[in-house]
């Protein structure tokens, strides 16, 4: 093509229905029911917090976090057939730095609890937790185990508990949707001091056990102390 001739598209060849609608602004292609509800005015008047909460609840990034049996059902919830993404909360993120919601899918044992707390701490605020399955409620079928933490609530705050062993994907979907409702209403479970906290070894109260371990653990190492006698 020579440079002095401007490039002109032959309009008659490319016009499609969609393009027409776009140019003329006609047709109902871009009309949502929300838009209809607003009527003729393109402005809405609402509280900023309310709007932001609604946004939060409508688009949640999950943490890709598999622990035990429940994670199999969690995978099924994310995948075809149940497809959690339909509700605006189905894209698992591998990094806790990018996630809003942590689904805790399984039994928490003594070796893993400090790591889970660490992952939870790495998530940016505001963050929410769905406890999946009986193990995160009370330790479930393994409650009597010498190594099992009697519920994830001992370590991190939980917003929604989904009971079952394991819960069906439908149950998890229901739990997540309930969480979205709560988030949209601006509710979240309070962050309080938990029975099992991650702390530096030197901050522990000195007792027989701490004295015994003093030569094995550095002063500034993070530790979690379990008082199994006081567990529910």
């Amino acid at each position: 093509m020579s440079s002095d001739q401007p490039f002109i598209t032959d309009e008659s060849q490319v016009v499609t229905e969609t393009r027409d609608a776009r140019m003329t602004g006609q047709g109902d292609r871009f009309n949502s029911r929300l838009r209809e509800a607003f009527g003729s005015s393109p402005f809405i008047l609402t509280k900023f917090d309310k709007f932001l909460n609604w946004c939060r609840g409508s688009s949640m990034f999950m943490l890709q976090f598999g622990i035990a049996c429940c994670s199999i059902e969690m995978m099924h919830t994310y995948a075809v057939k149940h497809d959690l993404d339909r509700f605006g909360s189905g894209v698992p993120r591998a990094s806790p730095r990018q996630a809003d919601v942590m689904i805790v899918p399984g039994t928490i044992v003594s070796k893993f609890a400090p790591r889970m707390k660490r992952v939870y701490d790495q998530m940016p605020e505001p963050k929410f937790v769905v406890g999946m399955g009986s193990c995160t409620i009370s330790g479930g079928p393994f409650q009597e185990g010498y190594n099992v933490i009697k519920g994830a609530e001992e370590v991190i705050p939980i917003d929604i508990h989904v009971p079952g062993c394991p819960p069906r994907p439908e149950a998890l979907v229901y739990g997540v949707v309930k969480l979205q409702e709560r988030v949209a209403n601006g509710e979240a479970s309070p962050v309080t001091v938990k029975p099992y906290e991650l702390e530096e070894f030197s901050d522990l109260e000195r007792d027989e056990l701490v004295d015994k371990l003093a030569d094995q653990i550095d002063e500034d190492e993070l530790v979690m102390r379990y008082n199994f006698a006081d567990s529910p």
Binding site: R118, L204, L213, I217, V223, M224, R225, A229
Partner: peptide
Amino acid sequence: DQERPQIASLPEH
């Protein structure tokens, strides 16, 4: 004794 307290450390952080 299953009731005794235990400490788990997190050295890998």
